[in-house]
Simulated assay, not measured.
Amino acid sequence: MDAEHEAVELGTQTQPLATGTPAGEGVLSFLNEYSISLSVLDQEVPLNALAAQALIDFREGPDGVLRTGDDRRFVSIEQVDVVPYVGPAALAALEAYAKGTGRVELPVDGHVGTFHGVAFNMAEARRAIHAANTESASNLQTLFGIPAAAVQSLVAARPILHMVQLSRLTNVNAVTMGQLKAHTQQAAEGDPCTGPGICQPGLICEGRPGDGSSPYGRCVDASYLSGNGDVCSRFVACPSEKLICIGLASGWVEGYCAPAWMGASFIEYSDLRLQSTNPLVTAPLTVVGLATVPMDINVELDVVHTAPHRLVLTLEDPGGETALLWDGPNEGTPPSRIVVTRGIPRDGVINGRWKLHVANPSGVGSGTLRSWTLKLTSRYD
Rank of each mutant, 00 (worst) to 15 (best):
A3V: 06
E4V: 14
E6G: 00
V8Y: 13
L10W: 15
Q13D: 12
T14K: 12
T14D: 09
Q15H: 13
P16M: 06
L17I: 14
A18T: 11
A18W: 10
G20M: 08
A23L: 10
A23T: 15
E25P: 08
V45Y: 06
P46M: 06
A49D: 12
L55A: 03
I56F: 08
F58C: 01
P62M: 01
V65M: 11
R67Y: 13
T68F: 06
G69R: 13
D70T: 14
R72F: 01
R73E: 03
S76H: 10
E78K: 14
D81E: 14
P84A: 03
P88I: 00
A92V: 04
A98N: 01
R103E: 05
D109Q: 11
H111A: 02
H111E: 06
V112E: 01
V112N: 01
F120S: 05
R127D: 02
I129A: 01
N133A: 04
T134N: 12
A137E: 15
A137L: 07
L140T: 08
F144K: 02
I146L: 02
A148N: 11
A148G: 06
Q152A: 11
S153P: 10
L154P: 12
L154A: 02
V155M: 05
V155N: 04
A157D: 05
R158Y: 08
T170H: 11
N171M: 07
V172C: 09
V172N: 10
V175R: 12
G178Y: 06
T184I: 09
Q185D: 07
Q185N: 07
A187R: 15
A188G: 12
C199Q: 07
Q200S: 12
P201A: 11
G202L: 02
I204W: 00
C205D: 04
E206S: 12
E206V: 03
E206N: 13
E206C: 00
R208T: 14
P209F: 03
P209T: 02
S213C: 08
S213K: 08
S213I: 03
S213W: 08
S214L: 02
P215I: 02
Y216P: 10
R218K: 15
C219I: 05
C219F: 02
S223V: 05
L225D: 00
G227C: 09
N228S: 13
G229M: 03
S233E: 06
F235Q: 14
V236W: 00
C238G: 05
C238Q: 05
K242G: 09
I246D: 06
L248M: 05
S250L: 01
W252F: 07
P259C: 00
P259W: 00
G263I: 01
E268N: 15
D271P: 00
L272P: 01
L274R: 07
T282P: 00
L285K: 05
L290I: 03
A291W: 10
M295V: 13
D296F: 09
N298K: 13
E300M: 12
V304N: 12
L313R: 10
L313I: 05
L315D: 07
G320H: 13
L325T: 09
P329K: 04
N330E: 10
N330A: 14
G332W: 00
T333Q: 13
S336M: 10
R337P: 01
R337S: 12
I338K: 04
I338N: 04
V340D: 01
I344Y: 11
P345C: 04
P345T: 12
G352C: 08
R353H: 06
V358W: 03
S362F: 04
G367K: 14
T368L: 15
L369A: 02
W372I: 03
K375P: 00
S378G: 05
Y380F: 11
